[in-house]
């Protein structure tokens, strides 16, 4: 069961300050592992993570993590959830509250500070998750499919909100997603990763002008071309995986059946 699997090999990635990087790729390509290495939640067997010239020894205030399943503490109020990382980092009590309220205001939840997580919708819970990750004022924000558990409408709205907050704070973001639309909407650069073991296959720069919510960015030739290209690459990578073989067989039959 515990036989080691090589999750990542020869991965080299540089994220510059204030840059928005999206990691995309098929399941099992080590996107999440890479994110955990960057935070320090996992120790690399070889290689290193360097942030601002230093090697962080353990997870800490240098990076803020946002999880797909929100992971708020159910017994704490919204405010106390945002206070939590500040408490862990032993920041003075008065400053904790000020800062937590400041970031709750940034995500638009200042009126819900006394609610419990289960009283909020999924989108609101993830806003708390975002405020909590930002409260330590990290240099880099690591987001592991943060909007995957939300419905389509909430998801688009959260993408807008994140875009706005990112431009306001000028923080570096590494964002894992399965949605190419999401990646193309948010990213300065897209890192395409391949599976078994996880590698960086390609780096794509997205030069669509910002802010991208001011126009129908999905109608631009760059979006369409990039999306089609990425989709084709990912499809090529997963085609060999057993769970997709049946789908390929169906595809082969479909044109014949239509005639």
């Amino acid at each position: 069961m515990d036989s080691p699997v090589e999750a990542l090999r020869d991965v080299s990635l540089q994220v510059t300050a204030g840059e928005f990087v999206c990691l995309v790729g098929p399941s099992g390509c080590g996107k999440t592992t890479l994110l955990r290495l960057m935070d320090g939640l996992l120790e690399p067997d070889s290689g290193q993570v360097v942030i601002d010239g230093e090697r962080p020894a353990a997870p800490g205030p240098h990076a803020g993590f946002v999880f797909q399943s929100f992971r708020l503490l159910p017994w704490r109020t919204v405010l106390d959830n945002v206070v939590f990382p500040l408490q862990v980092q032993a920041i003075a009590r008065a400053e904790r509250l000020d800062r937590a309220r400041e970031y709750l205001r940034l995500v638009g939840l200042e009126d819900f500070e006394n609610s419990y997580p289960h009283e909020l919708s999924g989108g609101m819970q993830q806003r708390v998750g975002l405020a909590r990750a930002l409260a330590l004022e990290p240099e880099i924000l690591l987001m592991d499919e943060p909007f995957a558990a939300l419905d389509a409408q909430t998801r688009e709205f959260m993408q807008l909100e994140l875009g706005r907050i990112w431009e306001h704070l000028g923080i570096a973001v590494v964002f894992v997603t399965h949605s190419l639309d999401e990646a193309l909407f948010l990213a300065d650069r897209i890192v395409l990763m391949g599976p078994r073991p996880g590698t960086v296959e390609e780096l794509l720069t997205v030069s669509l002008p910002r802010p991208r919510w001011n126009y129908d960015f999905r109608a631009t030739p760059e979006f369409l071309e990039r999306r089609a290209y990425l989709w084709q690459r990912i499809r090529g990578m997963v085609a060999d995986q057993p769970e997709f073989r049946a789908a390929r067989a169906d595809e082969a039959l479909a044109p014949a059946g239509r005639v």
């Binding site: 939640l41 997870p59 800490g60 862990v88 980092q89 909590r132």
Partner: peptide
Amino acid sequence: PDLLEAARSFGARRGQ
């Protein structure tokens, strides 16, 4: 365990 990992990501040590 997800909550433990979340807490660790903010730098929480064993006692915390």
